[in-house]
Computed example of a mutant assay.
Amino acid sequence: MHIASIQTGRGPTPGMHRHDFFECFLTLDGLGRHERVDGSGELGARELHFIRPEQAHSVRGAGPSGLHFLNIAFSPALWRGSGLLQDSLLHYWKPGRIPHSLPLDRARSRRLQDLGREAARGPHGPVEAIGLLATLLQLVQGGEALRQPSGLPDWLRDGLEAAAKPAALRSGLPALLQACGRSQEHVNRVFRHHLATTPTAWICRQRLKLAASLLRSTSLPLLDLALECGFESPSYFHRRFQEAFHTTPLRYRRENRRILPPPS
């Protein structure tokens, strides 16, 4: 997995290059141009572009301040091994005349940018890559943002947002406490007052929501899926999922299978 934040200025168009990996890049701010074998197009802010392996292209800045974009690349073997590529995201790298692109609203763009920063600082192994893929899948599906009740302290609101990300859910309570920046006793009291639950129960609920999303949209084996969502054993995951959804994970997957439609 490769992640880079790139600032490119105005100037001569760089030579087009090819690569053997799946790539997407998110334009953050500024203006630019995307040069391809079949033509070129303008680049604006908050656009997610998908580049197929062996597809020649180049990116350059066009405005006074150039173009700032986040680049993410994965090897084909890793994408296929995750179970996400062939099921859902592959449609966005489908061969065609023009590479596909998606506009993102400000909230989803910021979420992907934050995730990219976190991933760039941490290890780049298969587990981290699958977590990034899961979030990317939610973004292109237009997944809902975390719903929070009104009246929460700012530190708790920010902490919940950070703790609901896949990488944080794998860590669980330590990640939540670190994101909140408060003692466990204080967090417990505020959770009971504002959310009428405990931090542990909230984390489990977020893990189950992520698991349900992955069951609907991927073919990840249940063991890998359970570990990705932070459950330490398939049996515990199976029991908690059945308690929450009144069905088994496999039956839920069969009845709620959702594959992204090919882009028009």
Rank of each mutant, 00 (worst) to 15 (best):
P261C: 11
S82H: 04
G116C: 11
V187T: 12
L173I: 12
F50C: 11
F69P: 12
H194Y: 06
V190Y: 03
H124E: 07
R205T: 15
R257T: 00
H246Q: 13
E232G: 02
F21W: 14
R170N: 01
R147H: 09
L136Y: 03
P99R: 03
Q7I: 11
G143C: 13
E232Y: 00
G32V: 06
L152Q: 11
L146M: 02
S65L: 12
L90P: 00
I51A: 13
R33F: 12
P95R: 14
T13W: 03
E42I: 08
H238W: 09
C204H: 12
V140F: 08
V190I: 12
E232R: 06
V59H: 06
A45W: 08
S219L: 13
P99G: 11
L210A: 08
T218Q: 11
E118A: 14
R239P: 01
G125C: 12
G96Q: 08
R189S: 12
L70V: 02
L208M: 07
L70D: 02
S217W: 04
Q86Y: 02
F191N: 11
A226L: 01
P199R: 13
H34Y: 15
F191D: 11
E185A: 12
Q138Y: 05
T200Q: 13
Q148S: 07
L215Q: 06
K94C: 10
G39P: 07
A129T: 14
V59D: 05
G159I: 10
R18F: 01
A175G: 07
